[in-house]
Structures are given as structure tokens and as C-alpha cells.
Amino acid sequence: MDASVSPRHEVMRSQLGRARGLGSGHSGTAHWIAERVSAATLLPLSGWFVVQMFRLGGADYEDVTKWGGKPVNATMLAALVISSFYHAEVGLQVIVDDYVHGKAHLPTKLLVRFGTWLVGLLGVIAVLKLALGKSSSRS
């Protein structure tokens, strides 16, 4: 907020008139719930991933692709990636809402949403390739 900006040009409008229409879009509660639900989903999925990493840490390419090719592992991985980046999208959006003001707000918010969505999609595609594609090591 720039201290030098004078509100003089809006002299005919009351403070209530200024505030009207700029407030709640009636979607705050849904956003808040989405944050909590995705967090709750992440708890068991992350627990599973930690256990898998203990089993898999230090393993070589053949073992890891074999692990990723199993349908249950691929399902859990895809679920983990989707809920992680959904939770990140929802959470980072709130941070942008709180700290980025003015003209930069909308582009930053769109960029954050697009970025998290894109990285999440990359994760899902990678999991799908491991699960469905014949691994490229054999070709």
C-alpha cells in the first residue's frame, strides 16, 4: 500500500460504497475446508511414502521401476502427487492473497496455480508411464 496515494479522486464515494463488492466471494469456507480435507488425505499417503522410501532408499533403477510398475504403488503415488499439489495450490494461494497486493496480485496468483498444477501433472504423467508403459530400459 503506497502511503503517497491520495484518495482525493474518489471523494464522492462513501467508505461503505468503496468496500462493497470487494469483500467475500462466498468461497472462503470451501477453500478452508479443501485445505483441511487435502491435509487429512496427505497424512496416510505420506506415511505410506515414508515406509516405501525406507524399503527403497538406495535401490537401483531396475528395483525402483519394478516398484513403480505395481498397480497399488502407482495408485498410491498418483494419489500422493495429486493431493500434495492440490494442497500446495490451495495453501500457496492464501499466502499470495495475504502478502501480494495491488496489480501484482492476480498474475502472481494465476502463476502459482498454473505452476503447482503443471508440476502435479508432470508427477502424474511420470507415474502413469511407470505403471502403463513398458519400461524404456527393455527397449
Binding site: Y61, V64, T65, G68, L77, V81, V119, G120, L122, G123, I125, A126, V127, K129, L130, G133, S136, S137
Partner: peptide
């Protein structure tokens, strides 16, 4: 995710 993508890309 970059790790996953590298795994999917090959050895």
C-alpha cells in the same frame, strides 16, 4: 516429482 520424472525417463 523431478525424481519421479527422471525415473520414468529411463536409466
Amino acid at each position: 516429482v523431478a525424481w519421479l520424472a527422471s525415473l520414468a525417463s529411463g536409466p
